[in-house]
Design a protein around this nucleic acid. Structure first.
Lengths: 223, 223
DNA sequence: CTAGTAATCAACTAATCACTTGAATACTAT
DNA sequence: ATAGTATTCAAGTGATTAGTTGATTACTAG
């Protein structure tokens, strides 16, 4: 029954795509929207050639697709099922691998205080002016699409631009996904300054997939 | 930001667990219920030592847990989220990796005729006596739990025991999971004999997770 | 205590993988 | 054409992985 083995090794090809930390990081960035090879290589801290190789593996596993436009090649996640797969992977890692829990716990000062706010709640509370929505991703990613009304302050600039956020107002921060550290970090820093801050559950890709409204800036890269 | 890298490599550990065909096969068997190392090694066609090593990797990734009883060590899937992860993996592989589709297509004579029947439909149609439910897994797995009223005829015996299935009655076959070949094979053979046969969507683990009723025989291995 | 069984461990080989480097391709602008 | 840029290809190296084999541990039955 060689058919069986063939089949399992095809599945394993998808598994292999998930077996490397750098590839998972690339996938997390790609979950934001399409990106060029160069952008991805910078953000993941890899050489361009290496990034290209990883992307090709992901493409062979059917997880990303690419589109050539002029000189640049834009890669993107090839379907919502891939995002679901990534979330399922995260769920298992988070629930079972105690090291992950430990990492998250030690990174955050107080865990229980950091309950994320559900997506469903955010929209109405933002509309009522009860919270300020803070997008801590880099401007390019913000431009490509963000939660309506969100203020964009990249993490590096947070300390200087604290004034832009109301001292009393509760801040809800979000970033790339449920385990992107940016929002965790932002919340931790805001809390250090004595501000009320929470994290949005998950991140922008999940928000978008959930069918909630998004806003795009004019400088956005083409979708 | 070494925290980020740590985190991604923890996720990658789970990904690595999914990166080998034999491990995926072991997981599929484990999705049926708990199994001893020896059972698993036989069914996957691996040596006991090698099986043990794979199982330990899975355990490190938090995907399976084990329980020692006397001489034997019984492994089992450590949570429903693991089954969801496996399904998400399958979904991506199936949808995107054209080779898988090709494999499935060539293996089955006519694809469009082989639409699986949804779980929800099966129960009522079986109750009304419209279909015969056929479990083509080995007797041990059948004994450990099966769809109520299902007839157990392992694939090898199918040809001889054809008489047990009504000639006119439609047969719905199921096995271990959405891509276990047993049910595909059974349907193909029954159709060759001119019988009406379809596959149940997914397999037994998904049935059980969906909270649908199951039946257990007295010879079942402990759950 | 002894023999026997289930599982794991330890040491090893062949294969695969991640990453680097330098060259090649594909496209754009001058 | 020519130079310049983004990406891919090809070849090589060190690290990791899959699987084999034989020894070792943990337990049971006589």
């Amino acid at each position: 029954m060689s058919f069986k083995q063939e089949l399992f090794s095809q599945f394993a090809r998808v598994g292999k795509a998930l077996s490397n930390g750098n590839r998972l990081e690339l996938l997390e960035f790609l979950a934001q929207g399409e990106r060029s090879v160069e952008q991805l290589s910078k953000v993941a801290g890899l050489t361009v050639a290496n990034t290209s190789q990883h992307l090709q593996q992901l493409r062979h596993a059917g997880m990303v697709s690419c589109r050539k436009e002029g000189l640049k090649v834009y890669y993107s996640i090839s379907g919502d099922d891939v995002i679901h797969l990534l979330d399922a992977l995260r769920a298992v890692a988070e629930r079972h691998v105690s090291d992950v829990q430990h990492l998250v716990n030690t990174f955050l000062t107080v865990k229980d205080d950091l309950e994320p706010i559900p997506r469903s709640e955010l929209l109405e509370r933002a509309r009522d002016g009860l919270v300020t929505v803070l997008d801590v991703r880099p401007p390019e990613e913000y431009a490509a699409g963000h939660v309506p009304g969100a203020v964009n302050i990249p993490l590096q600039e947070l300390e200087q631009r604290l004034g832009e956020l109301g001292k009393e107002q509760e801040v809800v921060a979000y970033c790339r996904g449920p385990h992107c550290v940016l929002a965790f970090d932002a919340v931790a820093r805001l809390r250090e300054k004595g501000m009320k801050a929470r994290r949005l559950e998950d991140g922008y890709p999940e928000w978008k997939i959930a069918g909630l409204p998004v806003e795009e800036s004019q400088t956005a890269s083409p979708e």
